[in-house]
Design a protein around this nucleic acid. Structure first.
Length: 107
DNA sequence: TGGATGACAAAGT
DNA sequence: GACTTTGCCATCC
């Protein structure tokens, strides 16, 4: 317990708990699992995350709604399939799709 | 052991 | 609204 591995595991479970058509920011996830200062670790957790575990990493975006520069193209396709809408500048409509854990998918 | 790096965030420009 | 600088924490060399 209280290990970095557990932190990653919490991230994976939280990300996996994101409902369809919703997105969450790194800080949002880090905060809800109890580590508001570890938003960086969330990103690293995703980097080390097993993409075979059905982890919707594409639902994880910047607090600003911008996608991951290196994966923006993939995210856009995946999120578009999730019924998520984008702004004319290519950013996610956080206002409409930001995940609210207490609104239904609460831990 | 110490320095550099990274799928970032917040504030400032 | 988009870019730049600073700060945070764990991992890699």
């Amino acid at each position: 317990m209280s290990s970095k591995t557990d932190f990653y595991d919490l991230v994976y479970q939280t990300v996996r708990a994101i409902p369809c058509g919703k997105v969450a920011s790194y800080g949002q996830i880090a905060f809800m699992i109890g580590y508001p200062r570890r938003h960086r670790m969330v990103g690293q957790a995703m980097s080390h995350a097993p993409d075979g575990e059905s982890i919707p990493w594409q639902r994880v975006v910047h607090s600003n709604g911008s996608l991951i520069p290196n994966y923006a193209y993939v995210q856009r396709e995946l999120l578009a399939a999730e019924d998520v809408t984008f702004k004319p500048n290519g950013h996610v409509n956080m206002k409409e799709h930001q995940w609210h854990p207490e609104a239904g998918a609460g831990e």
